[in-house]
Amino acid sequence: MTNTKYGGQAVIEGVMFQSPRKMVTAIRRNDDSIDYFEMDRPQKDWVQKLKKIPILRGNVAIIESSIYGMKHMDFASERYERHPSDDMNIEAEKHEANKSKIVLSTVLIGILSFLLGKTLFTLIPVFIAEVFSGVVTSHAGQVALESFFKLILLLLYIYAISMTPMIKRLFQYHGAEHKVINTFEDNEPLTVENVQHHSRLHYRCGSSFILFTVLIGFIVYMFVPVDPFYVRILNRLALIPVVIGLSFEFLQFTNKVRHVPVLKWFGIPGLLLQLLTTKQPDHKQVEVAIASFNRLLRSVE
Rank of each mutant, 00 (worst) to 15 (best):
L170T: 10
R204L: 03
V224D: 08
Y230G: 00
E177A: 08
E185M: 01
I240A: 07
S207N: 03
K150Q: 13
T191N: 00
R169P: 07
V231I: 15
Q142L: 12
Y173N: 09
L237A: 00
A144T: 14
R204N: 01
L211M: 11
V257H: 02
L154R: 08
V226Q: 13
T213V: 09
Y230S: 06
N182A: 13
L215E: 01
H178V: 10
K168R: 13
P225M: 15
F209V: 10
L153V: 11
E146D: 15
Y157W: 10
D186N: 14
L237I: 12
I181A: 03
Q172K: 15
E146Q: 15
F250L: 09
S199G: 01
E177W: 05
P189I: 06
S208N: 06
Q142S: 11
S162Q: 10
N182S: 10
K150N: 01
H198M: 13
E146L: 12
R204M: 03
C205V: 02
L170H: 12
K150P: 00
S207Y: 02
F253Q: 01
C205W: 09
T164D: 12
R232I: 06
V192P: 03
Q252I: 07
F253A: 00
K168Y: 07
V180S: 06
R232T: 08
L215G: 02
N255C: 02
A176T: 07
F223P: 01
H178E: 11
K256M: 08
T213F: 03
L156I: 14
V242C: 00
Y159S: 12
R258S: 11
S208M: 09
P165Q: 04
M163S: 10
F218G: 05
V226K: 13
Y173H: 13
I210E: 02
G245V: 05
L154N: 07
L211P: 05
Y173I: 07
A238D: 09
Y157P: 07
V242Y: 02
M222H: 13
F229Y: 14
V220D: 02
E249G: 05
V220A: 06
Q142G: 11
V257L: 00
N194C: 10
Q172M: 15
I181Q: 03
V243W: 11
Q172P: 05
L215V: 08
H202V: 04
F218Q: 09
E146F: 09
F253L: 11
K150W: 00
V260N: 14
E249Q: 06
F248T: 00
L145T: 08
F248Y: 14
T183K: 12
G245M: 07
L154S: 05
L153M: 14
C205D: 06
P228K: 11
A238L: 15
L170Y: 11
